[in-house]
């Protein structure tokens, strides 16, 4: 619990710095914490804002599920097949480090302006980290676990579900956490560049109109959402591993 107190103090310091900054540069440059929260409250009171949220969430959930399923299955295949994994890994790490925005025009040209382009772009961001983490989870699993399950004469499915999966799950969750954030980032960037709906679109139009309080309200909403989901996943992981 003292840990929590420390974190709260850091957050409080951050809010104070934010307020101080606001006083320094003025309302037109940075909205105060209070203004931002009030703005977010009033935005959340409008139906139109919720339409944009649901638009973003639809694309995000679809992209995340695709990244999750695709990444874990691909990762398991590459983890089990040593040669395929060795060949693929450098390709994947290079793909991971390229700025994927430059490929967005290609995505738009393939999928057109619409939700499918956003989903595809989200998957491009989220798929690779989940694949890489899942692959390494399998590769780095202690060989003694597999041998133990053999000695206990477990069937392949028993061994997969009672030994291998619990052994690799913490690593996979780390990958999923990263994939979650990057998928969200991908969907938002997609919306910011070319879309008529969604939170990313709202951000871009607010930037063009110079509505600093709207920008900060959306940034706050997204940050709170992403950080809470991430914390939940970390908590789940800790429960799982008894660490």
């Amino acid at each position: 619990m003292p840990r929590l107190a420390g974190t709260l103090i850091v957050l409080l310091t951050f809010i104070l710095l934010w307020q101080g900054f606001h006083l320094l540069v003025g309302s037109s440059a940075i909205a105060s914490p209070l203004q931002t929260v009030v703005k977010l409250g009033s935005l959340l009171g409008t139906g139109e804002f919720w339409l944009n949220i649901s638009e973003t969430m639809r694309a995000f959930v679809a992209a995340f599920l695709l990244s999750l399923l695709g990444g874990i299955s691909l990762g398991i295949v590459l983890g089990v097949r040593k040669l395929a994994g060795n060949v693929a890994e450098p390709i994947l790490t290079t793909l991971y480090s390229i700025p994927k925005v430059v490929l967005y025009p290609l995505v738009l040209l393939c999928f057109g302006l619409g939700i499918s382009a956003k989903i595809a772009f989200g998957v491009m961001h989220g798929l690779i980290p989940i694949t890489l983490f899942s692959m390494n989870a399998i590769r780095q699993m202690k060989p003694v676990y597999r041998r133990t399950s053999q000695v206990m004469r477990l069937s392949p499915s028993q061994s997969a579900f009672t030994v291998i999966l619990p052994a690799i799950l913490p690593e996979i969750i780390s990958g999923v956490r990263l994939g979650f954030s990057l998928t969200l980032l991908g969907v938002l960037i997609g919306e910011m560049f070319a879309s008529q709906r969604g939170l990313g679109f709202l951000l871009t139009s607010a930037i063009n109109l110079g509505q600093i309080d709207t920008i900060m309200a959306i940034a706050l909403l997204l940050t709170v959402f992403a950080v809470s989901c991430n914390s939940l996943m970390m908590l789940f992981n800790r429960q799982l591993t008894h660490r």
């Binding site: 974190t7 956490r177 954030s181 938002l188 959306i218 997204l222 992403a226 950080v227 991430n230 970390m234």
Partner: peptide
Amino acid sequence: ALEPLLASYYAVPTFVFYPI
């Protein structure tokens, strides 16, 4: 105090702060 924040850092969609 910082560690939980650092662990969640990449969850924050950094680009939304660009306008600021």
